[in-house]
Nucleic acid binder design. Structure first.
Lengths: 138, 138
DNA sequence: GTAACTGCAAAATATTTGCATCCTT
DNA sequence: AAGGATGCAAATATTTTGCAGTTAC
């Protein structure tokens, strides 16, 4: 199965450029999440650091990727599911950070549980981030 | 009820200094979470920016405060409950970020739900971060 | 008095912005 | 051809480190 890289970009009304194709491909190949630094080191000097910042920002705005909250200053990004669109996300799955190998997983099959909020609180987004040891590192 | 600032510091075998007292007091007064920038702006030029970094790091190591994962590059910190100690946290409560006023709440009364992980995954820590509108902003 | 803590300077790192050039459509 | 995207330079912001002076105990 081929990845629909160009189609994904076009669907978001973005022009299809080398850097966007390469960065989007990285996300599709990795089954986990990527941080800015990952992309930079994996791509070498292929494109500018600034381009990576701008590309990630654009992808987030268009709903192609989403951010994963982390407790260590390192923001990570992962592909959104098809249901995601600009400004409206359905990332209610669990993220898992392996303390051993550092991989960030999107556990799509694990649904985020319902949480009862106190009176007066309404939520539009829930993030669940678990950390521990992944199946590969056992 | 007075806050046991000095006692908290001594219990963690830290010397009681001005900056530590002031920063710890800020956390005790705020019922939410604070980011480095909050502390810096609230304290003015009272103490060095570097001291804030080091104090926060020390407090985290000693289990006085814990980090709250966020999707925007801004790590926030909040007081740990009594049950927390260095290296061993019980922060399994839900954090809530108000999109309106920006306040971060520790919803201590709301327990983080159990999540079924896939085979081979074991977790040592769970963070639940919800965002939306808090009771004050309704 | 001694060990620990702070402030200052500076280095290292990360992020943002402006603008000229190049590429996609 | 026109608008958008990239690369480069530089400004800005953030975090870390070393060291000398100061403070808590």
């Amino acid at each position: 199965m081929r990845f629909a890289i160009n189609e994904t970009l076009k669907k978001s009304q973005l022009s299809v450029t080398d850097s966007r194709k390469k960065i989007l491909e990285m996300f599709m190949r990795s089954n986990g999440a990527l941080a800015h630094a990952d992309i930079e080191s994996e791509s070498g000097t292929e494109f500018d650091r600034v381009t990576i910042y701008r590309t990630l920002q654009t992808f987030v705005e268009k709903g192609i990727i989403h951010t994963i909250p982390t407790a260590d200053n390192a923001v990570r990004y992962a592909l959104c599911k098809d249901a995601c669109s600009a400004g409206h996300h359905h990332d209610d799955h669990v993220h898992f950070l392996c303390d051993d190998c550092g991989t960030t997983y999107c556990l799509d099959q694990v649904a985020a549980p319902q949480v009862m909020l106190p009176n007066g609180f309404t939520s539009t987004r829930t993030d669940v981030v678990m950390s521990g040891t992944c199946s590969k590192c056992h």
